[in-house]
Design a protein around this nucleic acid. Structure first.
Length: 347
RNA sequence: GGGAGGGUACCAGAGCGGUCAAAUGGGGCAGACUGUAAAUCUGUUGGCGAAGCCUUCGGAGGUUCGAAUCCUCCCCCUCCCA
């Protein structure tokens, strides 16, 4: 076995008595990550609209995301490798996690074709060129990118999704996962620091599939685990239900990553279920589009009627950390007809 | 003084006899956004209303069944030559 495996340490400092929430530290060669953590998304290597300096010093992000699919298409592996990896390329010297392109199987559904035995054929959204993403290739690309945390190549099924499709999709994801692990375990990092691989639970909104998938993922005993296939349009309560099921099976001593989530309330509920890591395009994309979460509800800063004082939601504030208070407040908000609470109504 | 081209809705800018309350952008006003095909997308943007009616294309007249579109005069603007 290569030396680089199993050297990403995760220490849990404290657990909540009333919920499954925990506070921990994840160690990587690019620095520590204090969990629970929200990871800003920088798909093409940079968090949009922000300079690396802002992301680090103002947002105080401890880790950012990149995307295998996007980085592979542009700037491409040759440039990334010549630069010495993504960290050198974009100037971000803290940890990076790369998504595998699994989400693009979902979001680019009309531009790709799944071939279970091979992988997925994509047609580039940039120039229309065709590319095959196999589990092995995705591992190789992420080695070239040099992410501290690499994600397994999965299929993210849509919602709604028939049971049979979800089951089949899950099985494909599992078989791809084995191939990802095999490739990962037989290759080494290219830039002298450790990389780790997180597998992803699938199973759509079906309880038995989620249980089965979680058990399979847990059995692999990787250094961290992810829950995928959520926040693709399903009702929030279903997302919570599936997350809870997965969390109860996934190893307690390993970080749990809920992919693509979410709103402030989503994050709070996720933490209570034992999630340690989150990512979502919402703060960056919606932020660019003028939206801000406040204690008075959703605010669109481009709208004249909202030009008044407000209190932004601060995920690091003690106020927000009090889940019962926040729940009660959000319920109160939801009762006010003139306020858009987003999906905060779930409690 | 001579010559040429213009003045269209909040702005820019199409339209040049009826299908024009007037294309298209921008701006304004709203809506959407959950591992980013997104600094994007959608709706709306003269007034009142259900159909419909009323007031709009520099100003005033005129031609016509009908004018933002044609004619006359006037007022502005831009460019070229003196």
């Amino acid at each position: 076995m290569p030396n680089f495996i199993n050297n990403m340490e995760f220490i849990i400092h404290k657990t909540d008595e009333k919920s499954s929430a925990r506070a921990g530290t994840l160690f990587t060669d690019h620095g520590i990550i204090e969990t629970p953590i929200f990871m800003p998304v920088g798909t093409v290597g940079a968090v949009k609209a922000l300079h690396v300096k802002n992301v680090k010093e103002d947002v105080k992000a401890q880790i950012i995301l990149g995307n295998t699919y996007h980085l592979y298409l542009r700037p491409g592996l040759e440039i990334l490798e010549n630069a010495g990896g993504l960290h050198k390329f974009n100037g971000w010297d803290l940890p990076i996690l790369t998504d595998s392109g699994g989400f693009q199987v979902f979001s680019l559904s009309h531009k790709r074709k799944i071939k279970p035995e091979e992988g997925v054929w994509f047609q580039s959204h940039i120039d229309g060129s065709r590319h095959l993403f196999s589990p092995e290739k995705v591992m190789d690309i992420q080695r070239s990118i040099g992410a501290d945390i690499m994600m397994a190549f999965d299929e993210c099924p849509p919602y709604p999704c028939e049971y049979e499709y979800a089951k089949n999709s899950m099985n494909i994801t599992h078989s791809w996962l084995k191939r990802c692990c095999d490739r990962f375990d037989h290759t080494e990092p290219k830039y002298g620091y450790a990389q780790t691989l997180f597998p992803i639970v699938q199973g759509s909104v079906y309880k038995d599939l989620r249980i089965k998938s979680s058990e399979f993922i847990a059995s692999l005993n990787r250094e961290g685990n992810a829950i995928g296939g959520v926040s693709v349009g399903e009702p929030t309560d279903l997302m919570y239900e599936m997350t809870d099921i997965c969390c109860q099976i996934l190893p307690k001593d390993k970080p749990r990553y809920l992919m693509g989530v979410g709103t402030p309330a989503n994050i709070l509920e996720g933490i209570a279920m034992g999630i340690d890591m989150f990512d979502c395009v919402m703060p960056t994309r919606n932020g660019r589009n003028g939206m801000i979460f406040t204690w008075e509800g959703i605010l669109n800063m481009r709208n004249e009627k909202w030009k008044h004082d407000f209190t932004p939601i601060d995920l690091n504030s003690d106020l927000f950390a009090d889940r019962e208070y926040t729940r009660a407040y959000l319920r109160h908000l939801y009762r006010q007809r003139d306020v858009r609470p987003y999906d905060w109504q779930s409690s």
